[in-house]
């Protein structure tokens, strides 16, 4: 009775490419609170399930249902999960003893950590650095800004997605532990953090252009506070504002409140002629 579902269909490189393309274009199309990227995942793997079970419609239905479960990760680095899942589904279809629970557990347990990794590298490191450089160009009216940003992001987005799925597929279930234990992630984040923080320090001066406007006359001499301060720490006000906001956010104040506080500070300070 314990007859194994065996079809022997093997996936080709093209199947993986097409799955990559489907995920890349469709992952967030109907992003929603109910199940986040579940529909995107099902759309990615649907045709693969169909191919793996050509004459077993009940297996296709079971496959589609298990991939309509809640799913949410960072879509580029997190696609390692997709590669692993495809590999597992292929082996399952070939009769390996892989239960439905194993696949669901694997997806659910990996999506969080990989979202953490992906959001850090994509959102907090790669994009801000590229954006900072491109904004520098764009603010002087150079069209190189948007061009470099578009190429830099599309290229990054597709390349990482494609590599993640391929690596995940190749390495099967060992993929994530390899990445996590190889120390590569730690090195990458350290490298990007140094680069990012250094660039960020310069952005403080470049983009926060507020200055002290206050001046007074003492004993017939005009004292311009900005000039005095510039001799000690130029750009002290932008730095101070950045650090105060950062500390406030770190202490758990809501960003919207920090924003509104700065708004009020600048509006009043500017109206009174203290800052400009």
């Amino acid at each position: 009775m314990a007859e194994k579902v065996e079809t022997g269909v093997s996936l080709t490189s093209k199947d993986i490419e097409m799955a990559t393309l489907r995920w890349w274009l469709m992952s967030h199309l109907s992003y929603n609170y109910q199940r986040m990227q579940a529909g995107g995942f099902a759309s990615m793997i649907g045709p693969i399930i169909q191919k793996l079970y050509p004459d077993k419609p009940e297996e296709v239905i079971a496959g589609l249902k298990r991939h309509m479960m809640f799913f949410n990760t960072e879509p580029r680095w997190g696609a390692v999960i997709h590669g692993i899942t495809i590999a597992l589904e292929e082996q399952k279809a070939k009769g390996e003893d892989i239960s439905e629970e194993t696949i669901i557990d694997l997806k659910s347990s990996l999506m969080g950590p990989l979202a953490g990794i992906g959001d850090t590298i994509s959102g907090a490191l790669y994009k801000p650095v590229l954006l900072g450089i491109c904004l520098g160009w764009a603010s002087t009216g150079s069209f190189l800004g948007p061009l470099a940003f578009a190429i830099g992001m599309i290229g990054y987005d597709y390349t990482i997605t494609r590599l993640s799925i391929r690596k995940g597929y190749q390495l099967g279930t060992t993929a994530v532990t390899t990445i996590l234990e190889g120390g590569l992630f730690k090195k990458l984040t350290t490298f990007f953090s140094i680069m990012g923080l250094f660039v960020l320090g310069i952005m403080v001066c470049k983009f926060i252009t507020v200055d002290i406007a206050l001046q007074t006359v003492i004993a017939g001499k005009k004292i311009v506070f900005k000039e005095l301060l510039d001799q000690i720490v130029p750009k002290a006000l932008p730095l101070l504002l950045t650090i105060v906001s950062w500390r406030a956010i770190m202490k758990g104040h809501r960003v919207i409140n920090v924003l509104l506080s700065l708004f009020a500070f600048a509006l009043i300070g500017g109206a009174l002629g203290i800052i400009k």
Binding site: T120, G123, A124, L125, P128, S193, G196, L197, L200, M203, V204, F207, I208, T209, V210, D211, P238, L241, T242, I243, S245, W246, A248, I249, M250, V255, V258, L259, L262, F263, F265, A266, L267, I268, G269, G270, A271, L272, G273, I275, K276
Partner: peptide
Amino acid sequence: WGIAGFNTVGKVLPAVGVAMLLKYM
């Protein structure tokens, strides 16, 4: 004076963007 205040706001708000990045990095 309102316009002056308004213009200053635009020069200060980028501090929120940089501060949020600093939080991540």
